[in-house]
Design a protein around this nucleic acid. Structure first.
Lengths: 78, 78
DNA sequence: GTAGATTTGTGCGTATGTATT
DNA sequence: CAATACATACGCACAAATCTA
């Protein structure tokens, strides 16, 4: 789970969880990752924190975001 | 630009830059000044510092902040 | 064709913790 | 000790894009 008191920032922990799901194939290429709102509910975090997590995943080259549609797992990442 | 080692605090330097733009008419009355996020990116500062700069501009009577909308150049300041 | 739901984008308000000067 | 500055994280509101009923 997410530990607010942990060594890593919350948004890094969340990004790591999503990245792990991508690595295991739970989140397949070209499929959407959970929406920001879904992450808010699942992890009990603020939306801003969810957005930072997604931003980190983009920087890692794992996902791509499409305004109005969602954020999707890149083919190369699967 | 902004000099972290300068005589004036960073937030004063940033406020001076924005005030100068207002004085030159680059930022016109009733138009928004750069958002806090935009200042963070442009000047390479923290958001808290950008907020302090905007606070200073308000104290100088140059701008007015509308929660959820932005900060705007006052007519009298243009 | 349009009204609603979903999702991301943007903007400010606030608080806490840490480090430096 | 106080002021400055940065990083993180929570919250609220509205706009823009997209899709669907």
């Amino acid at each position: 789970m997410i530990d607010p008191e942990g060594m890593k920032p919350v948004y890094v922990q969340v990004a790591d969880v999503i990245a792990a799901r991508i690595g295991r194939g739970e989140l397949a290429p070209n499929r959407p990752i959970p929406s920001e709102t879904a992450m808010v509910q699942e992890f009990g975090i603020a939306r801003g924190t969810a957005r930072r997590a997604v931003e980190l995943l983009r920087e890692r080259g794992l996902v791509a975001t499409v305004p109005g549609r969602g954020t999707f797992v890149l083919p190369a990442a699967g």
